[in-house]
């Protein structure tokens, strides 16, 4: 079976400073957590793979194909702080953006696409807030709008950039439930994550980064104290597994 996601010899730098060096890695199907300290290149890996920032060299493949041939199977969930939540739109407007590749570019959003957006909002517990202005949602609810938008893409692989950063307990539980639901449907998730306490209970694999690959593989094998220590440089106050 083809890996849902792989990168080979990926090098990325910002203004001459290397952010990722020679990353070669292949994701197995299921739930993968991408771990590492700040500046480890976790978000950079997702963005470079999706062509959102230029890579110096290397390539990414999705289900064995270049991105352009696999786009419909790939959903991206950017960091919540990357957009202006005062934008004049409702939760439903935002989630319906996921259906853009299936829609014509003008006129009202077709009923079927609005329905798909409503289903996705219901899946993250926001059915009642579909028509609310996004600026009037809580941070956790905004994060769930982003998750719903990714779900509404109907993809097989989800690249999520820190969806669990600074969210409330309800949102955290919702996201975990959605992740397990996706895994049950045979979908794959790569999630940039920071909370080491949730890894063992909820993820199948880890990729531990610190400018390059420190460790990768099934949680039971790769998520070790020594790998964490090497990635985080023995920072105090980090739970080790």
């Amino acid at each position: 079976m083809t890996a849902p996601f792989s990168v080979s010899r990926l090098n990325v730098s910002y203004a001459g400073r290397p952010a990722l060096s020679d990353v070669t890695w292949q994701a197995a199907p299921g739930l993968t957590a991408i771990l590492g300290p700040n500046g480890a290149g976790k978000s950079t890996l997702l963005k470079a793979a999706l062509g959102l920032i230029p890579a110096d060299s290397g390539e990414a493949r999705f289900f064995g194909l270049p991105l352009d041939q696999a786009r419909a199977r790939v959903a991206y969930l950017p960091q919540r702080a990357s957009v202006d939540w005062d934008f004049p739109a409702s939760a439903l407007d935002i989630v319906a953006m996921a259906r853009l590749p299936r829609m014509r570019w003008w006129g009202p959003v077709p009923r079927a696409e609005r329905e798909a957006a409503r289903v996705a909002l219901a899946a993250v517990g926001l059915a009642d807030l579909a028509d609310r202005q996004i600026g009037r949602l809580s941070g956790g609810q905004q994060q769930r709008v982003f998750l719903a938008r990714a779900l509404a893409q109907g993809a097989d692989l989800f690249l999520m950039d820190e969806p669990m950063a600074a969210v409330d307990a309800v949102t955290e539980q919702t996201i975990l439930a959605v992740l397990h639901g996706l895994a049950r449907e045979g979908k794959s998730v790569l999630m940039v994550h920071h909370d080491l306490s949730l890894i063992t209970a909820h993820f199948d694999q880890v990729l531990i980064l610190a400018g390059g690959v420190i460790a990768a593989g099934p949680v039971g094998e790769a998520f070790t104290d020594s790998a964490i220590a090497r990635a985080f440089g023995g920072l105090p106050g980090r739970p080790a597994g």
Partner: peptide, 23 residues
Amino acid sequence: IAALFHPLRALCFDEAFARSQGL
């Protein structure tokens, strides 16, 4: 503007997402 309404809106709200969709 009317003809490009939906992609323009998606771009103005979230360029990274719009780009990831191949717009």
